[in-house]
C-alpha cells in the first residue's frame, strides 16, 4: 500500500515538474525568442492570409510554378506520411512514369532527378534538389514568358547546401522559390 501511495506522489511530482514546468519553460523561451518558427514558420501574404509554412510543401501543378516532390498524402499537413512502399514496389515505377510525363518527359541523356519521382518521408518535404529545380526551369520560363536563364539564375540564387560542408548537394525551398517567382515576375494571365 505504501508502494502505491509513494508511486502516486512521485507521479504527481514528475507530472508537475517534467510536464507542466518543463513545457512552460520551453514554451516561454520559444515564444519570446523565436515566435515565428515557434509557431510553425508560417508565411503570410500582404493581405494577411497565411499562404503556408516555409517548412511544409504544398501542392503545385500549374506550369508556371516549380513543383515539389510527390507526396504520398497529397500534401496533407494535417495528416502527414510517406509512401512506405518497398523500393522495389511497382507502384513506385508507375508513379515515376506518370511524373516523368507530367514533367514533360525525360531521356537517358536528360534524366529526371530522382527526388522529383520519389516521395519523401512525411510527404511534406519543402525542398527539391537544385537539379530538380533546374529540370523545371524551361517549363516555368515558357509559362511565364521569360528567358530560361532568368529562371535558372533565380533558382541558383536560392540554392543552399543544407548541412554546409557536411552535405554534398544543394537544395531549393519550393514555396520560397515560387513566392519569389510570383513577386519578381508577373504571372501570365492564363493562370489567374
Amino acid at each position: 500500500m505504501s508502494n502505491l501511495l509513494s508511486s502516486l506522489r512521485v507521479a504527481l511530482a514528475t507530472m508537475a515538474i517534467c510536464v507542466a514546468g518543463y513545457t512552460a519553460v520551453i514554451l516561454g523561451f520559444a515564444q519570446a525568442l523565436t515566435p515565428t518558427s515557434a509557431n510553425g514558420s508560417l508565411i503570410t501574404n500582404d493581405a494577411g492570409t497565411v499562404v503556408g509554412s516555409r517548412l511544409i510543401a504544398q501542392a503545385f501543378s500549374s506550369p508556371e510554378y516549380v513543383w515539389p516532390r510527390p507526396s504520398a498524402v497529397d500534401y496533407d499537413a494535417g495528416g502527414a506520411g510517406g509512401s512506405n512502399l518497398s523500393p522495389a514496389n511497382p507502384q513506385i515505377t508507375a508513379r515515376a512514369q506518370e511524373l516523368i510525363s507530367a514533367h514533360g518527359g525525360a531521356s537517358v541523356d536528360a534524366p529526371i532527378p530522382a527526388d522529383l519521382v520519389t516521395a519523401s518521408g512525411a510527404g511534406l518535404d519543402p525542398h527539391i534538389s537544385l537539379e530538380g529545380a533546374l529540370f523545371q526551369a524551361a517549363r516555368v520560363a515558357e509559362a511565364r514568358g521569360v528567358e530560361v536563364s532568368a529562371i535558372e539564375r533565380m533558382i541558383e540564387e536560392r540554392a543552399v547546401t543544407p548541412g554546409g560542408p557536411f552535405t554534398a548537394g544543394r537544395i531549393v525551398n519550393v514555396l520560397d522559390l515560387n513566392l519569389t517567382l510570383d513577386a519578381d515576375l508577373a504571372a501570365p494571365a492564363a493562370s489567374q
Binding site: 512502399l85 513506385i92 516523368i100 529526371i112 530522382a114 520519389t118 516521395a119 519523401s120 525542398h127
Partner: peptide, 23 residues
C-alpha cells in the same frame, strides 16, 4: 531505388521516404 531501374531517372541513392534537407 530498385523500382526506378530502367526509367530515365538520374543516378542517385535511394530517395524514397527521405527528406532532402537532412542529407
Amino acid at each position: 531505388t530498385a523500382a526506378l531501374t530502367g526509367l530515365p531517372v538520374a543516378e542517385s541513392s535511394n530517395l524514397e521516404g527521405k527528406e532532402l534537407r537532412l542529407g
